[in-house]
Design a protein around this nucleic acid. Structure first.
Lengths: 163, 163
DNA sequence: GCGGGTCACTTGAACCGTCAAGAACTTTGT
DNA sequence: ACAAAGTTCTTGACGGTTCAAGTGACCCGC
């Protein structure tokens, strides 16, 4: 009894590559961030997204969208980062249902401290493998896949503009 | 104080897309597999890799390589799948250090049962977003990234051949 | 043949993510 | 003006992943 070969050669290659990247890349970047400061890739991303927002704050649900995470996961992580003094929760003035997460000055300083090493790792583990042309192809193809997974993902609204 | 924009536009797009795919894709496929049978994407992959091996078995370390996982992670999962009767551990006849994982008939039957739905999900969530040309580009680019992350990854030894 | 080094794997604890449930508030329909 | 439904977020329990340490087994030089 044999497993039917349901994907053709290119499809299989693409799928297996994505699968490997998926486990190898986060683990490589996580370990860089974890030795540099005690942060995970996700922690870093949460803070990075806040640092790029006007006023360094965002409602939880928007932050969840920008980190592609569930509200539940985000809530746990925000609690953790809040305990370290890097973030602060505040109620929204006009809608009492929403909580906004604010990046503190200490949080910002930590991020600025971590950023160069992290970007360096993103380059050496990922971008340096590719030519400019390939980076562009990957961006285009990647965004098509994201669109398929989440029709109105925030990334897709900024393909030409300024976050 | 502003976060320096250390990545150019295409680099940033590619990076954010990979990051999103990374969290969105596994979760979409996990949930399909979890409702179809009670398996995770990783569980499925472990069994799929065994099903494609000669004799439906592999040493733990080879299986770890083919699923891009740590030995520790694999060991825990194999224990779980063993309890369900889908896998079996056996000692290697010539080297007492190595343990081989064998896919049982029941495990194979489960896999065959799950396969069509899973492949369908891989197509609808991922491959259907792309043209043949793009699938080929992605396979090529993806393998370059994998090579950067793990020099002698098993995938890279089979780009034209038969597993 | 035996001691040090390496290899293949396992285990338990700590940590992280997911899920289901629920609390607090706002909006909608009548 | 009120109830029903929807939104936003939090929580605790559960299961999965990682990390550090440990257990045998093989290999190499002497």
């Amino acid at each position: 009894m044999i497993e039917p070969r349901w994907l053709n050669s290119d499809e299989r290659r693409a799928w297996l590559a994505i699968l490997s990247i998926n486990t190898l890349l986060p683990s490589a970047l996580d370990s860089q961030l974890h030795t540099a400061g005690k942060v995970s890739l996700f922690d870093y991303n949460v803070m990075a997204m806040l640092s790029e927002a006007e006023g360094h704050f965002l409602p939880m649900s928007q932050l969840a969208a920008r980190t592609s995470s569930s509200l539940s996961r985000l809530s746990h992580v925000v609690s953790k980062l809040e305990k370290r003094g890097w973030l602060e929760r505040r109620p929204h003035p006009h809608d009492a249902r929403v909580t906004t997460a604010h990046l503190s000055d200490i949080g910002m300083a930590t991020l600025v401290d971590l950023a160069p090493g992290h970007v360096e790792a993103v380059r050496t583990k990922f971008l340096d493998a590719l030519s400019d042309r390939e980076v562009n192809d990957l961006a285009r193809i990647g965004e098509k896949i994201v669109a398929r997974l989440d029709d109105d993902h925030w990334i897709l609204r900024y393909t030409d503009g300024q976050p």
